[in-house]
């Protein structure tokens, strides 16, 4: 297995009282999977993602990636943040270059890579614009291009499309699926939208809150990728059923 989450719990202190955010999570993810963490707010899905990405550590249990315990973030495992996390003083191009600069890739090569990814997200005409000159959707695309450009093994995405309108959301979802199908990277994607999870993932992990536990893991059959197909409706109804039991 590639990612191994072994009996992980996480406790936060809130006004000196410990709160159990995640309880005894066991989960393994294979290389090349597209996994969605689905659940309501407070279910600990973002907490788990932060621990996977190395921004936080489990209170109990351990997380191993490729056989090594995760202790800190790495350029091999990048995160696309909820609030984009672009540097406002850098143009789109320079933002995408940021990670490449620390990989010690030479200028000529950097330009080639940036051009490729900026084209992939359809922002070639905006390469030299600053974030403040771009819409939310465009900024998010730059953030995605920046993450992909360093050629990571794993991409973590934390509700990255929340601030987008429906049309940009749909088009950017398509680019992410295209990318995943082409490059077969491992993607872990946090969302609280059922249809987004079905559209993107090949496996959906459903979380329930207080404390955060995994209640169900579903495989998404290829047929479910088509809206309103019987498979789509079946898996959608199954998720809704799980959620209703929780409520």
């Amino acid at each position: 297995m590639f990612i191994d989450i072994d009996n992980v719990s996480k406790t936060f202190l809130h006004n000196k009282t410990p709160i159990l955010a995640l309880k005894e999570i066991d989960l393994t993810i294979e290389k090349g999977e597209f996994v969605c963490f689905l659940g309501p707010s407070g279910c600990g899905k973002t907490t788990l993602l932060n621990m996977l990405a190395g921004y936080d550590t489990p209170s109990e249990g351990e997380i191993k990636i490729d056989g090594e315990i995760v202790t800190k973030p790495s350029i091999k495992r990048v995160t696309v943040f909820q609030g984009y996390g672009l540097l406002p003083w850098r143009t789109a191009r320079k933002n995408i270059e940021l990670g490449l600069e620390s990989k010690k890739i030479n200028k000529h090569e950097r330009k080639k890579i940036v051009d490729e990814y900026i084209d992939m997200v359809g922002l070639t005409d905006f390469a030299d614009h600053f974030p403040y000159e771009m819409s939310g959707g465009m900024r998010q695309k730059v953030a995605i291009a920046r993450a992909l450009a360093v050629d990571p093994e794993i991409i973590f995405m934390d509700e990255p499309f929340n601030a987008l309108d429906l049309i940009s959301r749909s088009s950017i979802q398509n680019s992410v699926v295209d990318f995943w199908e082409k490059k077969k990277k491992t993607i872990i994607f946090v969302t609280h939208f059922i249809n987004e999870a079905i559209k993107l993932a090949n496996r959906i992990v459903i979380f329930s809150p207080y404390p955060g536990i995994v209640v169900r893991i579903l495989k998404v059959p290829p047929g479910a990728k088509i809206d309103d197909s019987p498979e789509y409706n079946a898996i959608r109804n199954e998720i809704i059923d799980v959620c209703e039991v929780l409520a």
Binding site: G54, K72, I75, G85, L98, E101, S102, V150
Partner: peptide, 21 residues
């Protein structure tokens, strides 16, 4: 904190963190 997270993610080292971030 987000900027510092980005710096960590891309493994940017000092003094680059100071100058670039």
């Amino acid at each position: 904190k987000r900027y510092m997270d980005v710096a960590k993610m891309f493994e940017i080292k000092q003094p680059q963190v100071f100058l670039k971030i």
